[in-house]
């Protein structure tokens, strides 16, 4: 049953299995295991980034396509929900319409980019995606009347998903719409992640892997490489857009910095590389480590700095303001020691 759920793609490492189960339990029980606004924010961000990174892994890890437009697709989904909620009013229908419109718009844009540039060399495709993503970011910023420009958009979502909606108490935790909103995000991300696992383990996914390894050979067997690459790009874009929609539903705000910035694109790249490309499970570990480090490393360093107050020089290095330096160092070390990502390393060390 569990193997069927995972589409036969078992973790293939005891440590990895334990880690993945740990992440699943922590995320499934986050509102009760780690009560508090900040921890719930972190858990929801982890869920969304797992999905976003997994959709990018479909492109980079399974198909061998380097794209810099993934945040653009993420943003399209987020703005889809924001615009729909703004213009159609508060309601479930607006969320569904916005999510679907964002996903369709992302898939169509991916189709156009793919048909124009996937026939040529990989570097050209990467450059095209970078140019289009930058153009869309500028456009969103300039079209102030529609998108809210740099300020972004704030909108209302159904009351059942907001803290104002109260439902009593369970295990000492006050149940409210925010927790419902979290479970909406968690369940959607979980199901879409399982869908991606199904895709990469299907005959379609095998063809993508064959194309990544040797596109000439895949063509010589009879597969239309451009068609498969374009289909993978569209699918990946649509899933990224759905992740963006969930982010917009969770935040109740969208802006260029939260959904379209190139910084997010770099974060996604790092999460894929740290977790392990072409594994799907790498997206889980990469997103968990990265988001936790982004949210808690600074606080952890503050504690470490106070604990080492008596030691000369060390508190200077552990100053919370230097958290980005340590984050960078952590990534350099992880890429150095785990060139195939954490999942690749764990699987090799079976």
């Amino acid at each position: 049953m569990l193997v069927t759920l995972l589409s036969g793609d078992k973790p293939r490492s005891a440590i990895l299995t334990v880690l993945l189960l740990g992440v699943l339990i922590c995320l499934a029980g986050a509102p009760f295991l780690f009560p508090g606004v900040r921890s719930l924010e972190t858990a929801a961000t982890i869920c969304i980034f797992i999905l976003l990174v997994a959709s990018y892994d479909l492109l980079l890890g399974y198909t061998g396509i380097v794209s810099f437009a993934h945040t653009m697709f993420f943003g399209l989904g987020a703005y889809g929900v924001a615009l729909s909620a703004t213009h159609l009013g508060r309601g479930w229908g607006a969320l569904v319409v916005g999510s679907l419109s964002g996903a369709i718009a992302a898939a169509l844009l991916a189709l156009v980019i793919g048909l124009f540039s996937l026939r040529v060399r990989a570097i050209f495709f990467a450059m095209i995606t970078l140019a289009v993503a930058s153009a869309v970011a500028v456009l969103v910023s300039q079209l102030f009347n529609i998108t809210g420009g740099e300020d972004g958009l704030t909108y209302r979502i159904p009351r059942e998903l907001t803290p104002a909606f109260r439902m009593g108490e369970l295990f000492g935790v006050r149940l409210n719409g925010r927790i419902l909103n979290y479970y909406l995000v968690f369940i959607c991300c979980f199901l879409l992640f399982l869908f991606l696992l199904r895709v990469v383990n299907s005959p379609f996914g095998r063809v993508l892997q064959a194309i990544r390894e040797n596109d000439f050979r895949a063509e010589a067997i009879g597969y239309r490489v451009v068609w498969y690459r374009t289909a993978a790009t569209c699918l990946s874009a649509a899933i990224a857009a759905l992740a963006g929609s969930l982010y917009a539903i969770w935040l109740r705000y969208v802006g260029p910095d939260t959904t379209l910035s190139f910084e997010i694109m770099l974060d996604i790249l790092l999460m894929v590389v740290i977790g392990g490309m072409g594994t799907m499970y790498g997206a889980v570990l990469g997103a968990v480590i990265f988001v936790l480090a982004q949210n808690y490393l600074q606080a952890l360093m503050g504690v470490a700095a106070s604990a080492t107050e008596g030691v000369p020089i060390l508190p200077l290095f552990l100053d919370p303001n230097r958290w980005l330096l340590w984050l960078g160092l952590l990534f350099i070390l992880s890429v150095y020691f785990f060139p195939t990502g954490i999942v690749g390393r764990l699987r090799a060390g079976r």
Partner: peptide, 8 residues
């Protein structure tokens, strides 16, 4: 070069 798909 045989062109097999080594990861599969």
């Amino acid at each position: 070069d045989m062109g097999i798909f080594s990861d599969l």
